[in-house]
């Protein structure tokens, strides 16, 4: 557990997560979302995508990990919301791709609710908008 006290305007350090095709297959199985655009190049290209893309919910899960990482406790999230703005293409390579997260503290309420505004990028492009997470500061 973290004793870190967050302050309004504080910038959080960059966190980077690697995403490979194997991660998407594993996530499909664990989540029950078997949409083939997340594992079949043929299907993804057929519907006009550049190739296989990550589940939006996988990127959102990484946003949750980023925040619990900054906060230092895995049960702190009270509210998490995002808008999916761009797909995260995941090439069929050992390296896959990377999603990077930073955040700024938007607000700290009197009852210690801390609001994070997140920025998520892949290959320099923002992949989420209005990504906001509220945690209870312990």
């Amino acid at each position: 557990m973290s004793e870190m006290a967050f302050e309004k305007g504080q910038q959080l350090p960059l966190q980077t997560f690697r995403v490979t095709r194997a991660d998407l297959v594993r996530y499909a199985g664990a989540s029950g979302d078997f949409n083939p655009i997340h594992w079949s190049e043929r299907t993804a290209v057929g519907v006009g995508l550049p190739g296989v893309i990550a589940h939006g919910m996988y990127t959102m899960a990484l946003a949750g990990r980023a925040v619990t990482g900054w906060v230092g406790s895995a049960d702190a999230v009270l509210d998490i919301g995002v808008r999916f703005t761009r797909p995260v293409p995941v090439p069929d390579t050992d390296e896959g791709t990377e999603v990077e997260f930073t955040a700024v503290i938007k607000n700290v309420s009197e009852d210690d609710l801390v609001t994070f505004d997140l920025t998520a990028t892949c290959a320099g492009e923002k992949v989420l908008a209005q990504a906001r997470v509220v945690v209870k500061q312990i």
Binding site: D23, A61, G64, T68, A74, D75, I80
Partner: peptide, 29 residues
Amino acid sequence: TAIGAADALHHDVEAAQKAGYRDVVAPPT
């Protein structure tokens, strides 16, 4: 495991119980 969340609260019953939960805690999504 699928989202790479390794925190003990998600995996270790004892750790979850020490934190005041009956059993392991689900990740936010």
